[in-house]
Computed example of a mutant assay.
Amino acid sequence: MFTTTPSFDSATRQAEAAAGAAGVRIETIEAPERLGVVSHLFAEVWGTDPGHEPFAGDVLRSLAHAGGAVHAAFGPTGLLGASAAVFGPPRKGDLYSLIAGTTRISQGVGYALKLAQRAWALEQGARTITWTFDPLVRRNAWFNLVKLGAVAGEYTVDFYGPMDDGFNAGDETDRLTAVWRLDTVGSAEAPARPEPDPLPGPDGQPFTARGGRSLWCRVPEDITAIRRQRPELALAWRTAVRDVLADALADGSTATSMTRDGWYHLTRSDREDTP
């Protein structure tokens, strides 16, 4: 459901409600020993070896000291999730979310973290939060575009270069850039798509559809499992989705929503095309 949030106070109430529903307490933390625990949680979520955490504790400490924020979600058993963000260029009014993760998938912890991050960003005067995500990870795409209400208008091929964690190893790290306007939370799911195009996707089933100024593109249900079990199929999905999304976004479309069964909905602005 789409809602408008005009103030920091109401954003704080929404964040507190989300934390209560998830059964967690959200804190911003700066103490080195506590940031070390956050670093270990990120390593657990991303499946990295000891000494190769996505963000080391000292880096998180510097980030917080420089004016960013590390939010941590604590439940009865301890730390369950965390996020870290810094501000973008001066005067842009944008907070850049570097990382967010939780050991409790689909239990509201990630949503509570993002709403807490949003409330903090509004208090600092930010207007948007930006981050990147893998376009092939369906649950993240739905969370970002529908649950939060972000949009994605930029596709970058191999954004990070090779990575050797439990999610990205063996694949190129293409990313969509999400931008979340902080005066809104949530978006409508994508409308019903028209008859799919006959061109098959990597699994032999249609994966694109077109209607009016809209384009739909399907992604697999669990790309992480496909990478482990059939890496050649995962690479085929990467190439197929890249060919559709990268061209569409470069041509002025924006990914605005997603269906529950994994179809991106991309729309074009109403501006007239120029020759």
Rank of each mutant, 00 (worst) to 15 (best):
S7L: 02
S7F: 06
A21M: 14
V24C: 09
A31Y: 14
R34Q: 14
G47H: 01
D49P: 10
G51P: 03
D58G: 11
L60D: 02
A66T: 11
G68P: 00
V70N: 00
A72V: 04
G78H: 04
F87M: 08
P89H: 13
P89Q: 15
R91K: 12
L95I: 06
I105Q: 15
V109C: 05
Y111F: 14
K114E: 11
Q117L: 11
W120N: 04
L122G: 08
A126F: 03
T128V: 14
I129N: 00
F133Y: 14
D134P: 04
P135M: 04
V137S: 04
R138I: 06
E154P: 06
Y155I: 00
Y160I: 07
D165R: 06
G166D: 07
T173S: 04
D174M: 04
L176Q: 00
T177I: 11
L182R: 01
V185C: 08
V185R: 02
G186M: 03
P196M: 03
D197Y: 11
G201Y: 00
P202H: 12
Q205S: 09
F207I: 01
G212F: 09
G212H: 03
V219N: 00
E221A: 08
A225G: 13
L235D: 12
W237V: 01
R242H: 08
R242M: 06
D243V: 12
G262F: 01
Y264F: 05
H265G: 04
L266H: 03
R268V: 12
R271K: 11
